[in-house]
């Protein structure tokens, strides 16, 4: 068995596809360091001009919400229907609003 400490760490890759769009997660890869991760990301995820800008983040640095908290985590939003414009009835005569 190989020593797991010798495995290159995992990086998550985010790419801005076009001007005006935010970076989007495209996948992950292994690299020894951040510069290596950027170079690998270019080769693995932008072979057809898919990106204008690349972010790499070491996967271990990401904190993720857990699917089992789904209920309690999002409950505050669920009970506030008045946050949506459709909650309010505006008479047709008023026009577009």
């Amino acid at each position: 068995m190989s020593d797991p400490r010798n495995e290159w760490p995992l990086w998550e890759v985010f790419i801005r596809g076009q001007h005006g769009l935010s970076h989007r997660h495209v996948g992950s890869l292994h690299a020894a360091d951040a510069e290596g991760a950027l170079k690998n990301a270019r080769d693995v995820y932008t072979r057809r001009n898919e990106g204008l800008s690349i972010w790499v983040v070491e996967a271990a640095q990401i904190t993720a919400s857990s699917p089992s908290d789904k209920g309690p985590l999002y409950e505050p939003a669920e009970s506030k229907v008045y946050r949506h414009p459709t909650f309010f009835d505006i008479p047709d005569e008023v026009g577009a609003m």
């Binding site: 068995m1 190989s2 797991p4 495995e7 992950s28 890869l29 292994h30 693995v44």
Partner: peptide, 17 residues
């Protein structure tokens, strides 16, 4: 190959394994 290895790794197996 690399896209797929990463997908497999999300299931708890390492690349080296």
């Amino acid at each position: 190959g690399l896209y797929l290895y990463c997908a497999a790794e999300t299931l708890g197996v390492s690349r080296d394994e």
